[in-house]
């Protein structure tokens, strides 16, 4: 390919190398800016402990946490409320789960023929067995 030209006695640069180096230079400069962008402090993050980071992350350097009495109480009270309400909500889930199961057992089961509320027996034609119990 192109080489240093001996004709004018001066060495020149290959076009390919120029292009490749130009691309590398742009990538390096963009990459550098991209890396430096990480130095930007997002203030919401500044005060957050990132527990996954070794040493506890940013914010773990606080010697003491929140020390305002009523604020501590508020946070602890809401913890207690969370637990109490959580247990209550679990009870409600189980009560409804159980009630739903009982109600479901009263319904016509899938594939079962139409129930006769007045106690009449279903006729053989009405059994729904032939069509797999599908009644539309």
């Amino acid at each position: 390919m192109s080489n240093s030209t001996a004709e004018n006695g001066a060495s020149s640069y290959s076009g390919t190398i120029v292009a490749v180096n130009a691309v590398i230079a742009v990538a390096v400069s963009l990459g550098a800016v991209w890396v430096v962008n990480g130095f930007n402090v997002f203030y919401e993050r500044l005060d957050r402990v990132s527990p996954t980071v070794e040493g506890g992350g940013i914010g773990a350097a606080f010697a003491e946490g929140n020390e305002i009495g009523w604020l501590v109480f508020m946070v602890e009270a809401i913890h207690a409320i969370d637990v109490l309400m959580g247990l209550f909500i679990l009870v409600m889930v189980f009560v409804h789960w159980g009630a739903f199961r009982r109600l479901a057992s009263r319904m016509r089961q899938p594939g079962e023929s139409r129930a006769m509320p007045d106690g009449g027996a279903s006729t053989p034609d009405d059994s729904g067995a032939e069509n797999g119990g599908e009644r539309r």
Partner: peptide, 10 residues
């Protein structure tokens, strides 16, 4: 206490 724990135990 997240993000700042009262006891700094996360």
């Amino acid at each position: 206490g997240y993000p700042v724990s009262t006891e700094l135990l996360v």
